[in-house]
Design a protein around this nucleic acid. Structure first.
Length: 546
RNA sequence: GCCUCCGUAGCUCAAUGGAUAGAGCAGCUCUCUUCUAAGGAGUUGAUGUGGGUUCGAUUCCUACCGGAGGCACCA
């Protein structure tokens, strides 16, 4: 519909002699202003040296004629907006589609494309903290948005099983005499211990650095045995959380797999792309206004940057794609720019299609989180705590978990990606008002109504569409924008508005037994279907009842 | 010091250069004999400061104030 209006406006502008002008088709803040608003007259008035309202008055009839039976009113308002109100039939047609088509809201903007999305990236030997939940929740939603637009998506996870943090944890284990680590918490403790020692003791620092090197080499059998055990425990613990969060990865990549290829890649392109400096191999990003960063350390170990290069090639080898997205925290923006620049020098096509989607931090009101000092909220403990809260109102443990996940995911997906989320563990998170459970609750209420199939339902049709109907039909355009901008919060905001409209409708209109029962049932069904698809896009589970 | 991002109501967040800056929480008023009150109706309350561009600025430019992040051997 938006496209139709855009075209009609374009044609009208041509007829009015305004030529090609940039304008927007938008939704007025207030439905009383109509379903769509066009600012074409405001935009074009200057070129034509005309009063915007006057020009709008010329355009309005032309647009109305072009839209035919789709529009019931096309009016000039305010400083020169052209407000368009859809006809009853146009609205009802949209609602009918919403109630009948399972994939309602999906599109074909990316049909035929293969897109890999990498997210979560926890580090084995460290516990998964709530920061990883950010990447997971946003990455999963972005993946679903892309999938819903017709693409084939491959979900990838990249886990850091080698490197200094691993050496610290292993050192901590050895120090504690723990040759048979059993839990992820034990590893977390060992990591914290090793980290403190690394900073406080020269001796420990030297030992850890040596361990790091030894793990890269992988020749010490006893050491590697401990490494394998610790790694397996971590990965197993991660799987439990992925499952709870609703993510199923297609590919797992490990730093240990790309360390060597990354190193080789850098060496192969030195000195063409990289340069040697103080025994290390660096990329001189400063020449391009970026940071100059080390790719291979003077000890010969690859850094994050070098491994990232190896990873890009490995991904392409395992699953060739048209686009490769990487969701990580904002603090890596600078580093990622350097990696991308280096990748573009080494393999232009690969570099061009690799994009970074930064996500903000989850900040605690109770001071900064640090896995080195042990001041962390693990992903698992957060989920457990919220489930406990949700259990107060839900006897069924499955539903309590669904509600808890909705609350957590909503908290993260309601805000524009890239910004920090402030989280107060004391106040916990909201289960009412703007919240995940609010959306689920609205859905469940509609489901109840739809489940009744009364004989001889009233077949009267109301004079005007309900507000909820006019909001319902916007869903596909919201999804389109969210996918285009890779910003799930547009969906979250929309679903909240939709649920609010539904709840108002629910409070003011009786459905069952009313003269318009059949009509209202269809509205309820359309709402359910829209909410179901919308929640899926956010990765929020849809409960059967609450 | 250099670079990037941010600053909206008491709090947490929205707002493709547009109309009266929207929500929720907290506060205050109402509202369950009706399909689930995790709900609904109402109410109080905000664009860090100064300039500029524009018919129109929370949005763009600029200076300042305040905060966060990055800036070679961590990821």
């Amino acid at each position: 519909m938006e496209e139709k209006i855009r075209q009609a406006t374009k044609d009208a502008l041509l007829k009015a002699g305004a030529g090609d002008v940039d304008f927007v088709v938008e939704w007025p803040a207030d439905l009383a202003h109509g379903d769509f608003a066009v600012n074409a007259a405001l935009a074009a008035a200057k070129h034509l040296a005309k009063n915007p309202r006057e020009l709008a008055s010329e355009l309005a009839p032309l647009i109305k004629e072009a839209l035919g039976k789709d529009a019931s009113r096309v009016e000039v308002a305010g400083p020169g907006f052209i407000n368009i109100t859809l006809s009853k039939d146009a609205v009802r047609e949209g609602v009918a589609t919403a109630s009948e088509e399972d994939m309602w809201g999906g599109g074909d903007a990316n049909t035929g494309k293969r897109i890999m999305v990498e997210y979560t990236q926890p580090n084995p030997f460290k516990e998964m903290h709530i920061g990883h939940l950010m990447s997971n929740i946003i990455g999963e939603s972005v993946s679903r948005l892309i999938e819903f637009s017709g693409a084939t998506v491959s979900r990838a996870n990249y886990q850091g099983d080698v490197g200094p943090h691993v050496a610290r944890a292993i050192w901590g284990l050895i120090e504690a005499g723990s040759t048979e680590p059993a839990t992820a918490a034990e590893l977390g403790k060992a990591y914290a211990h090793g980290s403190r020692a690394y900073e406080e003791s020269e001796k420990a620092k030297a030992e850890i650095d040596a361990l790091n090197l030894a793990i890269y080499k992988g020749e010490d059998r006893e050491l590697m045995e401990l490494w394998r055990k610790g790694r397996a425990i971590s990965l197993e613990a991660f799987e439990v959380i992925y499952k709870k969060l609703g993510t199923k990865f297609d590919y797992y990549f490990f730093e240990s797999e790309v360390a060597e290829s990354g190193t080789e890649l850098v060496k192969k392109h030195t000195p063409q792309v990289f340069t040697e400096s103080d025994g290390a191999v660096i990329y001189e990003g400063e020449k391009k206004g970026l940071h100059t960063l080390v790719f291979i350390t003077s000890r010969g170990t690859p850094t994050y940057e070098a491994k990232e290069l190896g990873l890009a090639f490995l991904k392409e080898e395992r699953w060739p794609s048209d686009l490769s997205l990487i969701c990580t925290s904002v603090e890596q923006i600078g580093h990622f720019k350097v990696v991308k620049a280096a990748l573009e020098d080494v393999a232009p096509a690969l570099g061009a299609k690799t994009l970074h989607i930064p996500n903000g931090f989850l900040r605690l009101t109770s001071g900064k989180m640090s896995s080195r000092t042990g001041n962390v909220i693990t992903g698992e403990s957060l989920i457990t705590d919220v489930i406990e809260e949700a259990s107060k109102k839900n006897d069924d443990p499955l539903i309590a978990e669904q509600v808890a996940l909705a609350a957590i995911k909503y908290m993260i997906l309601r805000a524009a990606p890239g910004g920090d989320i402030i989280f107060d563990p004391e106040k916990s998170l909201s289960l009412d008002g703007d919240s995940g459970p609010y959306l689920q609750y609205a859905y469940v209420r509609a489901k109840k109504i739809v489940s009744y199939e009364s004989e001889g339902a009233g077949t009267e049709v109301p004079d005007e569409p309900y507000v909820i109907e006019r909001i319902l039909i916007r869903f596909p355009e919201v999804v389109l924008r969210a996918e285009r901008e890779r910003a799930p919060h547009y969906v979250t905001q929309y679903l909240t508005e939709l649920a609010s409209a539904w709840n108002s409708f629910y409070a003011s209109e009786q459905v069952l037994g009313s003269p318009e029962e059949a009509y209202k049932q269809r509205v309820a069904k359309a709402f359910m279907n829209t909410m179901k698809n919308g929640l899926w896009l956010l990765g929020i589970p849809v409960p059967e009842k609450m």
